[in-house]
Design a protein around this nucleic acid. Sequence first.
DNA 1: GTCTATAAACGGATAGAC
DNA 2: GTCTATCCGTTTATAGAC
Lengths: 186, 186
Amino acid sequence: METSTVRERLLEHAQTLMQLRGYNGFSYRDLSTLVGVKTSSIHYYFPTKEDLVLEAVNQYSAQVLHDINGIDQTLPAAKKLERYGKLFAKVLGEGDQICLCGMLAADIQSLPDAVRLAVQSFYRANEGWLARVLEEGAAQGTLLMPGEPQMAARALFSAYQGSVVASRLFNTRTRVTEVTGWLKAK
Amino acid sequence: METSTVRERLLEHAQTLMQLRGYNGFSYRDLSTLVGVKTSSIHYYFPTKEDLVLEAVNQYSAQVLHDINGIDQTLPAAKKLERYGKLFAKVLGEGDQICLCGMLAADIQSLPDAVRLAVQSFYRANEGWLARVLEEGAAQGTLLMPGEPQMAARALFSAYQGSVVASRLFNTRTRVTEVTGWLKAK
DNA sequence: GTCTATAAACGGATAGAC
DNA sequence: GTCTATCCGTTTATAGAC
């Protein structure tokens, strides 16, 4: 049963293509083949490629942040971090995708400022969430958190982003979950 | 005084272009303009773009690993890690470049297997070096190292790679050095 | 909304003169 | 070694029919 609109499928496949190959690594033709409409029809919905990437990143960001905020707030901090790590591992898909915002951050010099702002916003939201969990975990004595929470959260988020890239590079799924394990206080 | 050969300048600029925009984000034409030779001359040295990226990554890897192995072995572990962090921060250049191997890891789905192997080799060398330093630092009580040294080293290297991407995204240089500070035992 | 047709620039790559 | 000239497919994008 195919209920989604052409517009929705375009956004979905554009997102996946960028997670696989980056902004400069896919074309309207690729998208055209996947969705089954001509490239001129894509321009009807998204006049330029920059329009397309901007909508894709905003939708992706909203979805992921919704999932993160869906993590049960009453859980102990270590458990919350575990759930977060599992969400992060899920972006790998069949093992060949990385986080869209991590990819666009790598491609940032090819992208308009509106995309930079959207990606920055995604980074800050994740770092803020992680900072609160780390602080809680430090208070509970279950998570290591040397230094300020915000600083540790930035380093930790960088580690998660780097770990999905490395996981794909080595064809393994373990590197993401290793990051979570790393923080558990001994 | 211009002593370097055309071949050397091609490799140098190709490296920088990829650190800025990635494998799919630059062309022989860009390189042609920068070096001042026609694109057909580039093909004389590097028949295909894949030949070019492979030589560039091998040269980059050798240079960086040489710098890392140049860190004084008699230094205390915490000091070694500090030096390593400074080397990593240097790849930012004018603030707009990331590690070539981090970029190619993001672009890995567009690249031939020989490049994947070269990038994997770079990752393993860095992780091995970091593992030894972390183990030494844990023994000296100056560095935090929960879990196995190799696991912690993989997570740490991911954090460094992610931190240069984030540093460029936010137009700051601090995020790389924060990673080093994070590990210092309190 | 989706198509055909086409534009105009760019992509990597090659042949052959000098 | 470097150039001119060129091939040919690709890329983003537009005009206009249906």
